[in-house]
């Protein structure tokens, strides 16, 4: 796993999942670092969607196609099957309709790539059960009253939703805060994983 590419670690892993030359839609693309990296290293083309106006100029400067959009309004501006991958990194937990967005991702793209903070992590569980307090951690640094994370879930929750939506998980990884994998993480991902990463597609979507 390359650690010197300057990418956020979860994106570094996702980048390895993306085939060179593919078309990518990055939801919540921030300043476009990830897309710029994919364009440079993997000859990827596509667009980034971002609601925060502060990110537009930096992304434009980085040569990224950034389109200011509210993800909660859906992806109706995009036609079906426009992309090979639709990426949603550390954003699923802060959208209004995660279930609808997952379906939208697989309408406009063949595969979805999602990363989210795992609410099933042992420290999170401990804070709630032992101290009776809403968990605050490295992955979830906000207090309950000011957090943008309104739809937190665990690996189990996410997989249950996938089953309900006929989404087939193709690959997943759970990593700790330095985004390292380990034997323990492989055995008990929902307990030890701080960040969850998933690659998935619709069950009816055949391999291409």
């Amino acid at each position: 796993m390359s650690k010197t590419n300057g990418l956020r670690p979860d994106l570094s892993i996702i980048a390895e999942w993306i085939r060179p030359g593919s078309r990518v839609l990055d939801l919540g693309c921030g300043d476009g670092t990830f897309l710029a990296y994919l364009a440079r290293e993997k000859n990827v083309t596509g667009y980034g969607l971002e609601i925060d106006e502060r990110y537009i100029a930096p992304a434009v400067r980085a040569g990224v196609n950034i389109i200011q959009t509210d993800l909660d309004a859906g992806l109706s501006g995009f036609d079906a099957s426009s992309f090979d991958y639709v990426v949603l990194s550390l954003t699923l937990q802060s959208v209004k309709y995660p279930d609808r967005l997952l379906q939208e991702m697989l309408r406009v793209g063949h595969e979805g790539l999602v990363t989210f903070p795992n609410f099933g992590h042992w420290q999170t569980r401990l804070q709630l059960t032992l101290f009776g307090k809403m968990p605050v951690s490295r992955a979830l640094p906000n207090e309950w009253y000011n957090t943008p994370n309104i739809h937190l879930c665990t690996l189990h929750d996410f997989e249950a939703l996938c089953r309900r939506l006929s989404i087939e998980v193709l690959e997943y990884r759970a990593v700790n805060h330095v985004h390292k994998s380990s034997v323990g993480l492989r055995l008990l991902p929902n307990l030890l994983g701080e960040i969850a990463l998933y690659r998935f597609r619709h069950r009816n979507e055949g391999p291409r």
């Binding site: 083309t45 106006e53 537009i56 434009v60 389109i67 501006g77 426009s82």
Partner: peptide, 21 residues
């Protein structure tokens, strides 16, 4: 403006879009 943007990315053209508050 978003109608224009949609038509542009439908054509896979390079486009950036901002809605200035």
């Amino acid at each position: 403006s978003r109608e224009i943007v949609k038509a542009l990315h439908d054509n896979r053209l390079r486009v950036s879009y901002a809605e200035i508050r």
